[in-house]
């Protein structure tokens, strides 16, 4: 399974992006094209999830997975915060901001994992897309509570409607949830006319998108001056422990192997779209050089190249 994953075009394109950035190649994906690909991928994954749920209906598994996802997103930052302050040596505000990233999720990691798992005959349930959307935001609240010693609104300059708007109207959340609902309403028959666009080209677009993400992640890492050995270690330790916890909880609540693996991958992933913007608004004094470098520069590539295989293997072992 490991060799199969590492030699899949999706992962190889990601590695190519990293390689190109490391050798300082002038390879670049046009910004507008990269943005269009991310919109396409999120719409496709949302639609497919909604269609699957429209076929299967709202099952008890969906409810328990949603509750598990919400709980993980809210609670994982507390564990990360303890490690970041005690072992990582970060101050309360930086640790709170970083911890929020590790409770929230990475859509791209999930999309890649779903594609790889499906290719291996382990297709996660469609409702995991809804779980993904639910896990985006609770961690932001936990991170703010941790950074501000239990008070969400201690700094009027940094809170209020702007933050709420950023959290709930974030483009990726709106698109993902909206596409999911469209899939739910349209169902399999309604999807047929648009299926060629959203299914035929999906894997190829994902390859090109991950090429760009490899470039972005490696450039973020090489340009960072804020990481030390302890923070690098934590950017690897936190996803491994979070992911193992996610797989274990997924298995204990009775999810199938693929969905338990997906829950583990969601728990292991770190946000680099919704949370950085929210943290920049809510905790402007927190250093973006730390939380972006950890989540995007280290944890994201780790999860894409190793984490997905690791958590699917773990789910297969204990499932």
């Amino acid at each position: 399974m490991i060799v199969e994953t590492l030699t899949s075009p999706v992962i190889l394109f990601f590695v190519l992006g990293i390689f190109a950035a490391l050798i300082k190649s002038d390879l670049a994906i046009p910004e507008a094209f990269a943005k269009a690909m991310s919109i396409y991928l999120m719409a496709a994954i949302g639609l497919k999830g909604g269609i699957e749920v429209s076929a299967s209906g709202f099952t008890p598994d969906l409810a328990t997975a949603a509750l598990a996802g919400l709980a993980l997103s809210f609670l994982l930052p507390f564990f990360a915060f303890a490690l970041l302050t005690r072992f990582g040596g970060l101050g309360q505000i930086d640790a709170g901001a970083v911890a929020a990233h590790y409770g929230s999720v990475s859509v791209v990691t999930f999309v890649t994992a779903k594609e790889i798992l499906t290719g291996q005959g382990l297709s996660p349930a469609g409702y995991m897309v809804a779980v993904l959307a639910l896990m985006e935001t609770p961690a932001i609240i936990s991170g703010l509570l941790l950074a501000r010693r239990g008070q969400l609104n201690s700094n009027t300059e940094s809170s209020g409607n702007g933050l709420l708007h950023e959290v709930f109207a974030n483009g990726s959340v709106v698109l993902l949830v909206g596409s999911f609902v469209i899939g739910l309403i349209a169902g399999k028959d309604g999807f047929e006319p648009v299926k060629p666009l959203f299914e035929t080209g999906f894997r190829g677009v994902l390859c090109l998108f991950l090429l760009d993400m490899g470039l972005v992640a490696a450039r973020r890492l090489t340009q960072s001056k804020k990481l030390n050995a302890r923070l690098v270690a934590l950017a690897l330790i936190i996803p491994v422990t979070n992911g193992a916890l996610g797989v274990t909880i997924g298995t204990l609540i009775g999810l199938d192997v693929a969905s338990a693996a997906a829950l583990g991958i969601l728990a292991a992933s770190a946000s680099y779209i919704a949370v950085p913007a929210a943290m920049r608004m809510a905790l402007p004094e927190a250093d973006p050089g730390i939380y972006l470098s950890m989540s995007l520069g280290i944890t994201f590539p780790f999860n894409i190249i190793i984490g997905i295989t690791l958590f699917s293997q773990l789910a297969s072992m204990i499932g």
């Binding site: 910004e31 507008a32 990269a34 943005k35 991310s38 760009d212 993400m213 972005v216 450039r219 973020r220 340009q223 960072s224 001056k225 804020k226 680099y272 779209i273 950085p276 913007a277 250093d287 973006p288 050089g289 972006l292 995007l296």
Partner: peptide
């Protein structure tokens, strides 16, 4: 002071 950065429209993180 904090290193180089590049805008990317995908994450918009930086």
């Amino acid at each position: 002071h904090d290193g180089a950065w590049q805008h990317d429209d995908v994450t918009e993180a930086a």
